[in-house]
């Protein structure tokens, strides 16, 4: 299983990399939505993308919208991981095609439980 971690902060990419690689994923990183699209196009196609919202060049919402518009990427699960926590922002992200949403800050268990909801790791994988 391959996870694409998309966040403009290297520190946050490190935090997420530690968590998802601990759950058995291989990890590819991207610093913004455009880099993430480039990574997807260069292949291999990830099983899940963990996507920040506010990033330079291309933000997470635009990345999600772009991925959802491409039928060949239908198999990519999209999970926002962002500090955006207004009710309306979560609604927007889900409407754009995000499958799940984690609000920063989060604990490792929160990521593991959301991945379990999405069927990507077995239930009870939380450390």
């Amino acid at each position: 299983m391959l996870a694409l971690v998309v966040d403009d902060s290297r520190a946050m990419r490190m935090v997420l990399r530690r968590i998802v690689s601990g759950l058995g994923f291989d990890v590819v990183e991207a610093g913004n939505g455009q880099e993430a699209l480039d990574a997807v196009d260069a292949g291999p196609i990830p099983d899940i993308a963990l996507v920040d919202w506010n990033m330079p060049v291309m933000d997470g919402l635009e990345f999600v919208t772009n991925v959802r518009s491409r039928p060949e990427l239908r198999g990519v699960t999209l999970m926002m991981v962002t500090t955006e926590s207004e009710h309306g922002q979560i609604v927007r992200a889900l409407a754009a095609g995000a499958h799940e949403y984690v609000i920063k800050p989060f604990t490792p268990d929160a990521i593991a439980e959301k991945l379990a909801l999405l069927g990507l790791v077995p239930a009870g994988s939380a450390s």
Partner: peptide, 18 residues
């Protein structure tokens, strides 16, 4: 927010919580 992050599907969060 930390409790909400714990395994509550986002679709349920936006529908049933304020």
């Amino acid at each position: 927010q930390l409790e909400i992050n714990r395994g509550l599907p986002a679709a349920m969060l936006v529908k049933h919580f304020r």
